[in-house]
Amino acid sequence: MAASTQTTSRILRVLNDGLGANVTDEDLRGVSRLDDILPLDSIAVLEFAIALESEFGIQFAGEQMKREFFNDFASLTKFLDAPPNPPQ
């Protein structure tokens, strides 16, 4: 659970520092779908994916590079908590 909180903070940092959004802790609270609080057009999805890769030291597989994957906030957080290819 603690890891998730830390992961959420890191996602928040990616949203603000990587994408230039101005999302707050409060905005993220209780969010199940990221597009509730962020426009997720195709460019935003790519920017988000690349910024997450950089922040978490991972690489998303091709089939993950879809809006649906990044939109489900709970499963995204769970994935980032324990990525299959963790940073070396």
């Binding site: 994408l19 959004a21 057009d41 935003a44």
Partner: peptide
């Protein structure tokens, strides 16, 4: 109103790329 209220309203009326990423 929340950020989610604004984004939900915008999404109902226009394409995704037009929705503000920064909302103050």
């Amino acid at each position: 109103l929340s950020r989610a209220n604004i984004i939900g309203h915008c999404r109902a009326h226009m394409a995704e790329y037009k929705i503000p990423r920064v909302i103050k």
